[in-house]
Design a protein around this nucleic acid. Structure first.
Lengths: 162, 162
DNA sequence: TTTGTCGTAATCTTTATTGTTACATCTGTA
DNA sequence: TACAGATGTAACAATAAAGATTACGACAAA
């Protein structure tokens, strides 16, 4: 009988997961780099002004995007440029690049279900697959949207303002 | 020219979003209630033992699930029971019930893009639709999975142990 | 060599979540 | 009707992550 074992507590240690604003900021950054590439040197200060965050936050993101081969950052003289065709950069690439969520998992699973409980020791096995299925659906949708679309729509909005 | 305006900072106020462990805990709770309904009175202490969290955390979740019409909680004598057929409870129902993410939005959008920048003042319009599209894909997948499946698979895992 | 910029470490602030204690309230039962 | 066992919920503490900010060394072009 596990009933008595269940009625008790324990210490825990969990990992958080969230889709942070790094994701939308990174997209914003790429849209800026492309939009202003011919007219300005797109520095971290310039981007910080458009996004409205501290330049260091931008530089950290630029490093992550560079690490993923999405952009190049020019040391010394400054500025960032896009490293490959916009049509080949998907939302998923960016999502992965900026490490939007902890260790690639969207859901925050409670860490220590009680192994003495039949449900507690099996729930992980059951749920992991389902959670994966949900996350995959999300990632597939992300993969279907390119930065090219984003930039084109942004430019069309800007056109309409004139 | 907006260049000068861009190279500057500003204060901000943001809202966090994450898929908290409340979601997986709530599923765990429902699996327990159903699995043990004939053999035990499923109290918050009992559930706390299986999930391995403080009973108050469980009670808070029970209230949220009750608010969504998913379970009933018995005051006084204690215990929780499921309020409708398991096949009619989807992962999405639970996700919504436990308020897994802030104000229904999965993505944390940076709050104050600079309105003086053509990209800054349009990025929200462009992205909102795309982010919605991604979130919808995720929610559709959630809607396709019922608690019945979860419970059945859990029971089948438990069977295999014997 | 000066100037502007990147790269990055270190520290602080803010915020949400979760943990915990405490206690009023409720209900079945002795 | 008093008791025992639960729930309902407020209040506060502890923990953790994100993001803000400062500082400064490294670098490249003029």
């Amino acid at each position: 009988m596990f009933h008595d074992a269940l009625v008790s507590f324990a210490e825990r240690r969990e990992i958080y997961m969230q889709i942070s604003s790094r994701f939308t900021i990174a997209i914003h950054i790429l849209a800026c780099i492309d939009t202003f590439k011919d007219d300005y040197k797109v520095t971290s200060d310039f981007l910080a002004g458009s996004v409205n965050v501290n330049p260091v936050v931008i530089r950290r993101l630029l490093q992550q995007l560079k690490g993923a081969g999405i952009i190049n950052v020019i040391r010394g003289s400054g500025g960032a440029v896009i490293a490959k065709p916009l049509s080949e950069i998907t939302m998923l690439d960016i999502y992965n690049a900026v490490d939007s969520i902890e260790n690639g998992e969207l859901f925050h699973f409670h860490e220590n279900p009680n192994k003495e409980c039949p449900v507690g020791r099996n729930i992980h096995n059951v749920l992991d697959h389902k959670l994966d299925q949900i996350q995959t659906a999300m990632e597939n949708e992300m993969r279907s949207i390119t930065i090219q679309e984003i930039v084109e729509e942004t430019k069309s909005y800007i056109q309409k303002e004139l």
